[in-house]
Simulated scan of single mutants.
Amino acid sequence: MLLPVIAGVDGSTESLAAAEWAAHEAVRRNRPLRLVHAWNWHPRRADGDPASAAQRHLAERVLRDAEECIRAATPEVRLTDEQVEGPATAALLRAADQAELLVLGSRGLSGFTGLLVGSVALGVAAKATRPLVLVRREADAEAPCLPADDGNRSARDGDLDVVLGVDLTETCDEVIEFAFQAAWRRQARLRVVHAWQRPSAIALGPGDIALVNEPHRAEEWQQFLSAVLKLWRDKFPETEVVETVVEGKASTTLVRAASAASLLVVGRHVSDRPTVPRIGPVTQAAVHHVACPLAIVPHG
Rank of each mutant, 00 (worst) to 15 (best):
A99K: 00
G105K: 12
L122K: 01
D159P: 03
C69D: 03
A99H: 07
R130D: 04
P147Y: 14
A72R: 13
A72V: 02
D159C: 10
G118I: 00
S110G: 15
A141L: 05
D65H: 08
G108V: 08
D157W: 11
L146T: 15
A139T: 01
D65V: 09
R130G: 06
L160C: 11
A148V: 09
V133N: 02
A126R: 05
L134I: 12
D159W: 12
R156W: 04
G118C: 01
A72S: 02
R107P: 03
E138W: 00
P144I: 01
L164H: 10
Q98G: 13
L101E: 03
T113N: 05
D97R: 15
D159R: 11
D81N: 13
A128E: 10
L132D: 13
A72C: 09
D81T: 14
A128F: 00
T89Y: 07
V135I: 05
E67G: 07
A128I: 01
P144K: 02
C145M: 14
L132Q: 13
E82N: 06
R71K: 13
D65G: 09
V162K: 02
D159K: 08
A91P: 09
D65E: 11
A91K: 04
S110K: 09
A128C: 01
P87D: 13
E76T: 10
D159G: 06
P147I: 12
E138K: 07
L146M: 07
G108R: 02
C69A: 12
Q98I: 02
P75S: 09
R107G: 06
R153Q: 13
D81S: 15
S119Y: 04
D149C: 02
D159V: 04
A66Q: 09
I70P: 00
R137M: 07
A126Y: 02
T74K: 04
L132H: 04
R136N: 09
E76P: 07
A95F: 07
E142I: 06
T80Q: 13
I70M: 01
G105R: 11
E67Q: 04
V135Q: 00
G118V: 01
N152K: 13
N152S: 14
A128K: 03
P147K: 14
V103C: 08
A128R: 04
T113C: 05
A66G: 13
V163S: 10
A148S: 15
V103Y: 07
T129H: 05
G108Y: 06
A121M: 00
E142C: 05
C145G: 15
D161T: 07
A148E: 12
T89I: 10
E76Q: 15
N152V: 08
T89H: 00
S106Y: 05
G111Y: 10
V84D: 14
P87C: 12
S119L: 03
L134V: 11
R130K: 11
A72Y: 00
V162I: 02
F112Q: 10
C145F: 11
D161M: 05
D157G: 12
T129A: 10
R107V: 07
D157F: 06
